[in-house]
Amino acid sequence: MGEVMLSVEALDVTFRRGGDTVRAVRGVGFDVARGESFGIVGESGSGKSTVLRAICGLAPTSGGTIRLKGQPLPDPRPATFFRAVQMVFQDPYASLHPRHTVDRVLSEPLAIHGFDRREERIEGALRDVGLGPSFRFRYPHQLSGGQRQRVAVARALILEPEVLLLDEPTSALDASIQAEVLNLLDRLRAERGLTYVMVSHDLAVVAHMCDRLIVMQHGAAVEELTRAALSAHRAATDYTKKLLSASEGFTPA
């Protein structure tokens, strides 16, 4: 592996409220090289989003170390972290401010991080995700689900980060827009050497986008695979085998 961009070691995350304790992540670890695309798949509720949120300092981490370019990350994360690492959240409704127009969603991070040529960047970012200029002054509730998702992707890309954490970035998109967004992400990675960590429940999307992946179940990483192994349906654990066969479509019981 080349230079390690992001490393997660023995990560533990525990949520507590009243008598309820949820050990959402148990000893998860992986390294992602600069320019690599790393996938996380797994059961719903297995801790995939929590891993990404922990990298951003947004989860109650109870153990383990997360490093960016070899340096352990301070808590809370400094502003320079969010310049280098951007996240696209799973739930675009919750992550877009309801009273901010698309224009404001995109221009605010540019202003905060002191970017020039803002006008040009906003138009470019919207074009990249297949939204025309007519969407620029709309509010989130005036957009369809997939349009909101694309605004969230545009917001992450506009800061030109080195690392993108993508939580189900295309699960709300139809096949044609999904293909466009995946091609865009692929192209940016090739052109700018970006590093991705991508969560998806769609094995075909992960096979297409990621060089390596882990499979999570119940808070733990149960298996690590290469793209070649996934494509050849060479899985070691029963759970991964089940995922592969369920991906074929619906079969009546």
């Binding site: 096949a175 044609s176 293909a179 091609n183 075909a204 986008m209 050849a232 592969l244």
Partner: peptide, 14 residues
Amino acid sequence: CLPKIEGGVRPLPT
């Protein structure tokens, strides 16, 4: 436009 687990073309057809 759909990607495939078994691998396919890159970039995806649009």
